[in-house]
Write a protein that binds this DNA or RNA. Sequence first.
DNA 1: GGCATAGGTGAACACTGTTCAGGTTAGGGT
DNA 2: ACCCTAACCTGAACAGTGTTCACCTATGCC
Lengths: 177, 177
Amino acid sequence: MGASKTSTSQPVRRRRADVVARAIDVLDEHGLADWSMRRLAADLGVQPSALYHHFAGKDELLAAMADELLERGRRPVEIVTWESELRLVCVELRDAMRSHRDAAELIAGVHARGEGAQEPVRRMAAALARAGADDDLARVGAGLVLHFAFAHVGDDDADFALGLEIVLDGLTARLVR
Amino acid sequence: MGASKTSTSQPVRRRRADVVARAIDVLDEHGLADWSMRRLAADLGVQPSALYHHFAGKDELLAAMADELLERGRRPVEIVTWESELRLVCVELRDAMRSHRDAAELIAGVHARGEGAQEPVRRMAAALARAGADDDLARVGAGLVLHFAFAHVGDDDADFALGLEIVLDGLTARLVR
DNA sequence: GGCATAGGTGAACACTGTTCAGGTTAGGGT
DNA sequence: ACCCTAACCTGAACAGTGTTCACCTATGCC
């Protein structure tokens, strides 16, 4: 961005965003298993304790990283059918999880702890609800597709597509009745 | 040391199975997050280093715990159809994952690391192959059902059953064509 | 009875996340 | 221009973690 510093707008202590960006760099360089608060702090040239002014703890920082990766993966596409929406969310998720080293473990782990990465499942549940699914079907179906995406990031494109079609078939059978 | 017998150390010999059983007790009492080699060792009245005569490391021990829990969950039931086999494996998995505190995280984590808990997915893939699925469908289908079971342990019985039926519907559509 | 070895000791290494009292710096309001 | 507040950071410490090492010992087998 070519924006110059404007004194009219908020100074925007964007330290937090810097930390997240750096945290993702550290993830790329060392992997999730070797990612640590201390290593990130060292990489930032800062004491570990400084990180606790931006994040309550490691889990919150990891959640912010996951959300950032999901946000970067968003693509503005016009949605037509509920199936295309589900497919799009899956593709976005898949791309996000493959965009950086260990991003799949990161995102799945954060979601398992219920600390973030909640938006994809909300979007899918909403799409299913719009398609006429009742609450149970929307909730279960969205969770089904989400966890399918989590579990099959490592699969090749053909396997991933096949698995997704199986799930969508099962959902269709319950929606268009 | 010299003349008197050391009062602080009394070697108690254990076997591998004893250690695993105790490890599961510790899991029940403290949860997975607070489970540690040192805590288990203390619970056994043994030095942490003694555990490394039975297991190469923490991961191997956790894998042994997961396998033990899955083994305990096995039930000898006669199988008729591929669907009933898949359902049975799911129920066994679900029961195993609910049988002890944090058993779901344990089993899913161990499986994610590819260190054990590989039998359920093999059984399901074999059932699908017997039903006429090609290699791709058997592999993808088994993984689909397995990860569904992993991801939805926390759901109530109705949600779990609904999700399973959706997946089975999707599979049926591709098998009986 | 001797011996191999499975099992155990206790200390140490190199880490981890987190907390805390206290210092430094930058911006906005008066 | 000043002060004040809040954000930001320091450095040390706490309470753990998994793992390794050299050395010792009890048990079962020939």
